[in-house]
Design a binder for these strands. Structure first.
Lengths: 207, 207
DNA sequence: TCAATATTGTTTGCACTGTTTACATAGTTT
DNA sequence: AAACTATGTAAACAGTGCAAACAATATTGA
């Protein structure tokens, strides 16, 4: 493994291909992404990728897997940055999730899009998905122990919490929020306000 | 306009094409949908669709527009079926939304997928989107007048409510719920439980 | 050391796609 | 009936995912 690329061998084609694919997705969306163009950008013929990925979807699945690993990292970082209060740690993960979606939209599209690689067909992808979700569930459980959150199956509560921020992130990337006059510049404020409704509930009696 | 199809002219090709496209999307997803195959199913050459839609995306946009009209109908029906209590009417729309997503998944994918037609480029699509959303906002406003819901901009509250059910619907179609052990058969129960958390909030003090 | 072998890239070819162009047919209007 | 418009067909093009068969480079084991 020489590392340096020679005239013939590339060096680290898988990594280069994934990077090129991410660029293309950022530019043209998942649907507009093309294996041949990715190969072109990697400086290689259009058949070369097949030495490393069985087909186009497998490459996308590999990228999505990286995405989940990155998301997991960012969730952990967000919790740590929030200090030691369990509720604060939980609350910090909502904005962190949305921020991930916005800042790494190509990853997000690949991870959660309707035409994303089927997680039942790529088990290591499903595994890294679960690992990221586990971080949230653990945080929920910790906040429950602290007595700051409703009781109940932490997995279930985490799921519902995830659903809401996921909806926000999705609508945000989709442009649905901007179309409805939500300013993109004060994302933090929006999430905070949404979280308030979320935590206190929608009933009038609660406020 | 004879209505009956002759040897040459089809009769109502646009409608037939949209129906064929929906079938294909149900079978192979949006990414797997092909203009040529849709034309084939409609019994017409692959260039014929271009007499009615400028390109592939325009056909998809037209279908998505139908989808929003259908969603609007179902939201209205759900509210009416819930009787006259404003809160009950509001609560009924959550499950109605998720049910629409599940029962009309092809529409839903087209309406809200990442690679869905750009709503800023198809204004009549954006318009029918807004009309459906308006139904929800009006219901929120009515529930607020009844004093059963937190005060505040009904548009904002409706948006947050929409985000959550949207997250549920999305995760449901994506298979994320099934992967996490949520049984698909008791959808109603799941939504009800989610709504409870949603309405009462996540703080322990509320319950 | 150096031939055998496994990796990785290339070339060529295939069936398919979205889209355009020129043409043919059917309905409609005057 | 003639002119016109709407709607279909036929043929062609560049671009796609994928599959051989082939070529160049690395790695390995005697």
């Amino acid at each position: 493994m020489s590392g340096a690329k020679t005239a013939y061998h590339h060096g680290d084609l898988p990594r280069t291909l994934k990077a090129a694919a991410l660029e293309l997705i950022a530019e043209h969306g998942v649907a507009g992404f093309t294996l041949r163009e990715a190969a072109r950008r990697a400086g290689v013929t259009h058949a070369a990728p097949y030495r490393h990925f069985p087909d186009k979807t497998a490459l996308l699945a590999a990228i999505a897997e990286d995405g989940f690993a990155l998301l997991k990292e960012q969730m952990i970082e967000a919790a740590e940055a929030a200090g030691s209060d369990p509720l604060a740690r939980f609350l910090a993960q909502g904005p962190a999730y949305v921020r991930f979606a916005v800042e790494h939209a190509p990853y997000f599209r690949l991870m959660f899009g309707f035409d994303a690689p089927d997680k039942t067909k790529y088990e290591s992808l499903a595994r890294s998905d679960n690992e990221a979700f586990r971080v949230l569930v653990d945080t929920v459980a910790a906040a429950q122990s602290g007595g700051h959150l409703v009781k109940g199956d932490p997995e279930r509560i985490g799921l519902v919490a995830w659903l809401m921020v996921h909806g926000i992130a999705h609508a945000y990337i989709d442009g649905a929020l901007e179309r409805r006059g939500i300013d993109s510049s004060n994302l933090e404020t929006e999430i905070a306000e949404g979280s308030r409704l979320f935590l206190h509930g929608f009933f009038d009696s609660n406020h």
